[in-house]
Amino acid sequence: MTSSPHTITRRVLGIASVVTAMFGRELQAQSMPSSSRNGPAKSDVRLTVNGQTHDLALDPRTSLLDALRDHLGLAGTKKGCDHGQCGACTVLVNGVRLNACLSLAVAREGDSIVTIEGLAADGKLHPLQEAFVKHDGFQCGYCTPGQICSAVGMLDEIQRGVPSAVGDLAAAPQASSVEIRERMSGNICRCSAYPNIVAAIMETQGKTEGRAG
């Protein structure tokens, strides 16, 4: 990770990329997948994912989701709608849950990203992963990584006192079933495993402290 990522100036990036495209294409092409040969100029970006730093040269159009899946081989994060409507691509960025499909990878330089692959620690599943297994919080499983990453971020939001549409603005929020359903509405499960997902999340309350990515 760079020392002060938030002050990096990328003004010259466009120019540098154009120069690369004009003079560096043949050199680059040897180390790139064939699909990106003759593509537009690349941008250099350093991504920190699950504690590991990766230096990538990406087409600026690459979403964080595609960078994770196609460039880093982290296919646990799923592509559902690719439009921020389903939540399957939810990851934690600096501890906060986001839709990776609606974020440009180049804009994530210096951020700390945690995916479903990064939740288990010391050979042990994250408490939410264990709870999803125990409560059968899925059927097909496609939405599950997004559900679990979202739940990690969501429980952290409750701990930080972030309010919701169904709670009392003046009171500290509780992880009740009603609250969890409202706060998890950005994660769609087309198998409709919702009751078990809610049960799994409720069981992990208080067990996830300090593990929100």
């Binding site: 921020g84 939810t90 971020g153 969501m154 309010p163 549409a165 003046a170 998890m184 950005g186 994660n187």
Partner: peptide
Amino acid sequence: ADQRVRQRYPVLAMALLNGASGQLRNQ
């Protein structure tokens, strides 16, 4: 989540919380 917004402008906090999803509101 800002306490001043919640206390003095609850209509604004409520409108925000009724929009989008948790992930989208974060971004």
